[in-house]
Amino acid sequence: MLEDKDNILKNIQRGNLQEFEKLFKAFYPSLCNYALRFVKDTNQAEEIVQELFCQLWETRKNLKIHTSLKAYLYKATYFNSLQVLRKRGVKTQYEEYIKTHKPESSLPINSVEEKEIYSIVQNTLANLPERCSQIFKMSRFEGLKYQEIAIKLSVSVKTVEANMGKALKAFRKNLKDYVGIIVL
């Protein structure tokens, strides 16, 4: 999707807002999540990433990126987060991060693919029978035990088991092509 870095950059430099929007949407949640690791504040994390993209747009004409776009964005987020920490005066915390968190070492495994995977997840859930996707969400997103789900939905634990199996199978089928790539 975003493999063609030079083209994307060129388009953005020409002022192609759609391309910029795509880039933004593809990276925003994961970059925020990344910034969150350092600043430990959701709002601040979002601010950092939003500012980063504003800057990126403003300086787009003179922008030269030698690494991959993804690496560039993560690195910029990393440095901006540290900046925020430093401004906050969390000196020890800041120094600690400098020592232990090199940007490369803390790059998350999945980033740009996230948006695509997320849509696969959404699609898979949408295509499962309603009860099945409901059970899966309760188990995985809400952290409920089978027993708790069974009681809440007035079904048997067996039904929960069967539906969970069904969902898992569907996800494996749909994610097969993706997870392999990312894990590598």
Binding site: F24, C54, N110, E114, Y118, F141, L175, V179, V183
Partner: peptide
């Protein structure tokens, strides 16, 4: 791995809504 990925991505996407943020940035 599927399950962990699904959970992680769901959490991140829920927490940081790119569509909303985009409106502000744009």
């Amino acid at each position: 791995k599927d399950l962990n990925l699904i959970q992680e991505i769901n959490e991140i996407q829920q927490q940081f809504n790119a569509d909303v943020a985009w409106t502000a940035v744009k």
